[in-house]
């Protein structure tokens, strides 16, 4: 069952963008952690409609989270009377887009449901619900699982030499799966050597790569679909989703800073203060 704000149910459903219940909410938060041995999700729901909470407490309904992954045909259904749950999934079971759909679903017939939170337009007559009917639905939470998403963001860039550039001059080509940072031959050689030192890598992260990530984000903000098929664009967009970052809500440099996990701070700790991990 897809979340569709325009869909009409034959009974009232508490859900976003609907005025079946004008003054109350059903909201879900999901915290997904990807480890080497498993993928863990901490899911929590908050519901302010007392009549629905009563039905859950009486055992007539329960929280249901449908976790699905279209690429791997994975689907699991978590059902509980508790408003929060911890779940684990085998790492090999999920790849690409993973969606968690939150519901409150009827488990036993409810012949005479009423709620003071219902829109008065429904009138005073009670509603009858049967198992499988939906009392509440929240928007799906989306995550992306792919080994490329758990590599540093700089992995979408590659340094290439380009004839005709002077030392210190560099250009970026976004028309590839990897973003190409083009440098003169001698500058590329110097950077390749410099990358052997952790301190130098941090300096590069805060200079060349930070500028390149900022420009890549800027390109995506202006994008009208021309970069959609490039792997770098997919990875930046999916990393933003996984980090709860709305690229369109911030200037490009702010998003770049978050996506790169505040590289100035790492430079400060490891190089300026000389601390090791």
């Amino acid at each position: 069952m897809k979340f569709d704000p325009n869909k009409a149910f034959p009974y009232p459903v508490l859900r976003p963008y609907s005025d079946d219940y004008p003054q109350v909410d059903f909201q879900t938060t999901v915290d997904l952690t990807v480890g080497t041995d498993n993928i863990a999700a901490q899911i929590e729901c908050a519901i302010s409609a007392e009549a629905i909470v009563d039905q859950i407490e009486e055992g007539n309904a329960e929280y249901v989270w449908v976790v699905s992954c279209r690429d791997t045909y994975f689907r699991t259904v978590i059902k509980t009377a508790q408003s929060q749950v911890a779940a684990e999934f085998p790492p090999g079971s999920l790849r690409g887009e993973v969606q968690i759909d939150p519901y409150v679903v009827v488990t036993r017939p409810i012949p005479d449901y009423t709620s003071s939170d219902l829109n008065p337009e429904f009138g005073k007559d009670p509603f009858a619900f049967s198992p499988g009917d939906i009392l509440a639905q929240d928007e799906p939470q989306v995550f992306f699982i792919d080994r490329d998403l758990f590599r540093p963001l700089t992995s979408v860039f590659e340094l290439v030499k380009r004839d005709g550039l002077s030392d210190g001059e560099w250009l970026i080509d976004f028309e590839q799966d990897h973003v190409q940072i083009q440098l003169s031959a001698s500058m590329k050689e110097a950077i390749d050597d410099a990358r052997n030192s952790p301190a130098n890598r941090l300096i590069l992260l805060n200079s060349l790569y930070f500028s390149a990530v900022t420009e890549a984000v800027q390109k995506l903000l202006q994008d009208e679909g021309e970069y959609d098929t490039y792997r770098w664009a997919q990875i930046i967009r999916q990393q933003a989703v996984n980090n709860g970052l709305d690229l369109s809500a911030h200037d490009a440099y702010v998003s770049a800073n978050r996506l790169m996990k505040y590289p100035l701070n790492v430079l400060n700790v490891r190089v300026f203060q000389g601390k090791t991990e």
Binding site: M1, F9, V77
Partner: peptide, 14 residues
Amino acid sequence: IGGTKLLPALSSRE
């Protein structure tokens, strides 16, 4: 039916 009933949440008998 799947538009109003959450079929994945139901038992195989249902």
